[in-house]
């Protein structure tokens, strides 16, 4: 037992020495640009969300099944604030997508069940019928449209869709356009939009580009910190938030140099979409009506800002 204590003590010392910290750094994202949230707050908004007026009398397929079991199950990968993230204190999953899901559940008059899982498992879970909807910051791709029913797009007013690359600050000078990524190794989250952009605009275009897929975006951050790759493909909001909290270790190339992926080649791209099983048109119809209504009356933007506030993401940070 004595030996054990000695080893433990040595371990503590080791950890203590290994992490020389110059000063206490607050890891809460810095609220640059003075963005001040003026809404009612996430929890209050969640509880007071209204519902869309829809006609449910002709419900069939999965929609009928949802109404019968009384729960709407959504699959999401909570590693993407402010769209979906776990509350650090309770572990409950929050985010703009969750508010949208709650709104849909309210509309159907059923209870919302949020199932968190790895991004790669989210779509499978819809395939196998384990979840009714996949709401996890999905963007439009032709493949997704082919295999699933996809909803109308939704996005907040300020949520300009830019997708860029995060690089170590020390290397930022090397990059002036996407062409400079020839011969570089880039991380992208498996099955994400960024994977498609890297494939279409780097991998298949320039010499020697290498892409490494990660299931969890945090693996990519660790890998980039350790110098295992040169860059990470990100949407610009996430990129800027990682850059802001890394003490100047990483920079967003969109912010620094205006480098971004060209989205004009994906004409149908318009914000995020909800995915569900192919053929569930009556469910799709209800989801679309919900999205149309909250996009029209501005409720979605309110949801987005509440989620930004709850996750500490500054939506104005990319300016």
């Amino acid at each position: 037992m004595k030996k054990l204590l000695v080893i433990l003590f040595a371990l503590l010392l080791l950890v203590g020495c290994g992490t020389k910290s110059d000063d206490v750094v607050d890891n809460e994202p810095v609220e640059e640009g003075g963005w001040v949230y003026e809404g009612v707050g996430y929890d209050a908004l969640y509880d007071s969300l209204g519902k869309a007026e829809v006609d449910l009398s002709n419900a069939d397929g999965q929609l009928a099944a949802i109404l019968e079991k009384g729960t709407l199950v959504i699959a999401t990968s909570p590693d993407y604030p402010p769209m979906e993230f776990p509350d650090a204190e309770t572990g409950a999953i929050k985010g703009a997508d969750i508010l949208l899901a709650k709104y849909i559940a309210n509309t159907l008059g059923v209870e919302l069940v949020v199932e968190g899982m790895e991004f790669g498992a989210v779509i499978t879970s819809v395939d196998t019928g384990k979840s009714d909807l996949a709401i996890s910051g999905f963007g439009y791709t032709a493949e997704r449209a082919e295999s699933y029913e996809i909803s109308h797009g939704y996005q907040a007013d300020s949520d300009a869709a830019h997708h860029t690359i995060l690089v170590p600050a020390a290397d930022a000078d090397q990059y002036n356009s996407l062409a400079d990524f020839a011969g570089k190794k880039i991380y992208a989250q498996a099955n994400s939009l960024q994977q498609m952009y890297v494939e279409d605009q780097l991998l298949n275009v320039y010499e020697g580009v290498e892409m490494e897929l990660v299931s969890d975006i945090n693996e990519a951050i660790l890998g980039l910190s350790a110098g295992k790759a040169d860059a990470i493909a990100f949407d610009s909001t996430t990129a800027i938030n990682y850059a802001n909290t890394s003490d100047g270790m990483f920079v967003s190339l969109y912010k620094e140099k205006g480098i971004e992926f060209d989205l004009s080649m994906y004409n149908d791209y318009a914000g995020n979409i909800v995915l569900m099983k192919k053929g569930e048109t009556s469910l799709l119809d209800v989801v679309n009506q919900c999205i149309d209504q909250i996009m029209e009356n501005g409720l979605y933007t309110e949801m987005y800002y509440a989620a930004c506030d709850a996750s500490g993401v500054d939506p104005t940070a990319e300016d």
Partner: peptide
């Protein structure tokens, strides 16, 4: 995962 959303990854 919980803390990664506070940008604490390692």
């Amino acid at each position: 995962t919980l803390l990664a959303n506070k940008y604490l990854v390692w």
